[in-house]
Amino acid sequence: MNLREHLRDRWVAASVGLTTGVAAVAVILGFVILPVMQSYTNYVGLWDAICSAAGMLGRAPAGAVVQPMQAGTQVVLTPTMLQPADADSVGRGATLALRCTMCHGARGLSEAGSPNLAGQYPFYIYKQLKDIQSGARPSVVMYPLVVNLSDQDMRDLAAFYAYLPRLPGYHPAPPRPRIVVSGAPMRSIAPCGACHGALDYKIGSAWLEGQPESYLLTQLQAFASGARHNDINGQMRVIARNMTPEELREAVAYYAQTPP
């Protein structure tokens, strides 16, 4: 059959006609009538309504952009950005780390209540250095030490501390409190280990086991109050805000006493 005969076939005419008809009615309803009838929208004219129904991005209302009250983190982490760390990088990091030893210990293990860095995830160290440098994580102690570091310096420091062995365990782990095991889904609290490494690791989060109790508690309280605000999507602020003081203490005590 040629095209003309095809078009004369009543099956063709009926099926194409019906399909086109249904589509046309749906398009008119979905793109024109329903958007125009929706009284709660603020479309500027018919064309604006049609574009919106098609999924086009609307213009931002002038002057109504809300600026964040604090500078958040600008760091973008990807799984492959720090790999592979070679021996040169670790060596350079070891040299740079000499100025960190006063607080973080000669082998990355602190006796001053500062966080232990030995065996910490490289992503975490790199991101914190970036955030301290940019002001996303304010720190009067760390800022002068970090302000002149280059991007490569930070990668080297991250490689060095990740390379150092964690302190071996010398006592059995305490029983895990409920908030650590299962979180509290009804309050948007995930189990800690879902990001922090015991169950799964989400890049950018820290290794917590064996950290000083006072440091962990201070940081959780800072997240809860918003004084610390460099978590990428605000997830630690939400979690810390929703934890009870009792749960904060239990979680912190558990991690401080668990061998790294």
């Binding site: 749906a26 309803l29 979905g30 329903l34 049609i50 999924g55």
Partner: peptide, 9 residues
């Protein structure tokens, strides 16, 4: 990411 019109369609 999909417009309401296409969802309706």
């Amino acid at each position: 990411q999909v417009g309401g019109g296409f969802k309706y369609l």
